[in-house]
Design a protein around this nucleic acid. Sequence first.
DNA 1: TTGTAGGCGTTATCAG
DNA 2: CTGATAACGCCTACAA
Lengths: 328, 328
Amino acid sequence: MATIRDVSKLAQVSVATVSRVLNGGYVNHETKKRVTNAMQQLNYKPSMIAQSLNSKKSKTIALVIPNITNPYFSNLAKAVDDVAKENGYKVLLFNTDDKDENIDYYLNIARQKYIDGLIMATPLKDYKSQSDVPIVVLDRVKDKSVDSVVSNNRNGGKIATQHLIDIGCRKIAHIKGTQDITTAQERYQGYLEVLSEYNLINESLVVEGNFDLDSAKDATGKLLLEQPDIDGIFAGNDLMAVGALKAIKKMGKRIPEDVALIGFDGIDFSRYTEPELSTIAQPIYDMGALSTRVLLDKINGLSKDITFHELDVSLIKRGSTKRQSKGE
Amino acid sequence: MATIRDVSKLAQVSVATVSRVLNGGYVNHETKKRVTNAMQQLNYKPSMIAQSLNSKKSKTIALVIPNITNPYFSNLAKAVDDVAKENGYKVLLFNTDDKDENIDYYLNIARQKYIDGLIMATPLKDYKSQSDVPIVVLDRVKDKSVDSVVSNNRNGGKIATQHLIDIGCRKIAHIKGTQDITTAQERYQGYLEVLSEYNLINESLVVEGNFDLDSAKDATGKLLLEQPDIDGIFAGNDLMAVGALKAIKKMGKRIPEDVALIGFDGIDFSRYTEPELSTIAQPIYDMGALSTRVLLDKINGLSKDITFHELDVSLIKRGSTKRQSKGE
DNA sequence: TTGTAGGCGTTATCAG
DNA sequence: CTGATAACGCCTACAA
């Protein structure tokens, strides 16, 4: 590993000069050429570690997510990585495994490695942002003391529910997500709001799932057994919608003829089912990209004040809600 | 940010002593207590960057994958992260975006950041492993000069094909993956081997997909149009199997009655389809975990020689191949 | 335009 | 058992 000193010797200049050609300072054209030649001969690349030690910056950001295996988060990661790369930043992956308790562990590592900033996409309640590194959070509105990027979940819940009503559903169930997660609350809120407009609210139509397939499958199975006349289901996310779909089919009901079904997220695999799932698409990639940009701006001091971005969701109509507009 | 010097002052000892309590050297019990107290008061955490500068190690490994969005790789990433975390290592994410040309870029970053080792899960042809950092590759057998972890793709191809035969298929098509990828070649090989045993080989039954859904859907559509009597399809991976499934259904054929279908990988979503997909499951998590362990052993000098691990795949029978053992 | 020297935070060596 | 001090590789005044 060639060091700056090796280069300086070979080029017969001081290390300061080498450093200058590296970072763009005043340096004579000729000597500059000598230096770059030397660098190439030695295949010299500056040690980012040494640079970090005195700049206290690392040109890397950390992405904190509960589970990279979840398509929602892997898509997010892709976006973050893309934007980071564009700007010469690296991405350290912090997969919390849904263990929010360990958040301090990650925060400490961030400090110790001079991580320049964090993107937190974990549904963490509240952590005292005692840390001094810039942070952007996703999907958390509670505390407006942090920069955040969210999508309009409440509105999404409304759109989904309204869509079910539009295609003729009158007994609409909701498989809600874990309620300590704000996004789940909001989607539920949206659902309630629309139903109340139509005087269709019925508490027994709401069950809670775990944001995963199996919990939703079970819940839906029971629900359908108790109330066979349910004609529409809004699932809190796509994964649960798949679970619901399986339960519905298992009972011998047809989708969408007997029960219409809509999910939330707009994950790729919502297209894999039969029928394909209608869903409320979140601009996942955009959210990841935007939060990264916001973070980088923070890091580079381009933006000083706390920002709050809310992105729009959109309805994707597919087979699972495609009816011959029976009713209105 | 408290430094070791701050601690040393507060505890009234030299930095050397602080360093000793940190790394476990001889130090008097009393003074040790003073030091740890000081550390706590100051909320001192050693700078990993400074440590790295000294040791030329970073306690972080890099994971190089083509696309984190692909469930295969995100599951891999999870495994790598788990094992790394267990051992106090961090994971830097290198998402190549299928651009293998940039591999040098990543290799350089690795050098410049004193990355301790790399896990390469990209279907790269060959790169001169001129780098001196330990590397473990996944899914590449060509060159046995590198440590590698693979699964038995050829055998998987055989098992899949044999299974189709066992349930009575006689005209078995194969949607193979891009053939510059060794794993795709091997699966294809396995397919051919079994068919040749039964004298069932027919070149017109093989088409190439792009490892993604849509390409496979198109390919299968055409294939089925030309040869309506195909009664079994082995897809090169699960994603393509989903594509095939859609094409089959679109033609009004039943699965598995008219056409049986089997995929490869064992990705979660192979359960989301209707019927659920039979598949050859790779021990993805195990592969990721194992390769990480191999890498860490390399890093810590516990293993000096080049190792080659081949893991077994397993047949998962599900709805898409469930027949009333018609025929043999 | 170029060189010298001090500092970034730790660890390791070598005396005491 | 403890304390100076030199490295690690780079950047940045400060001088020249």
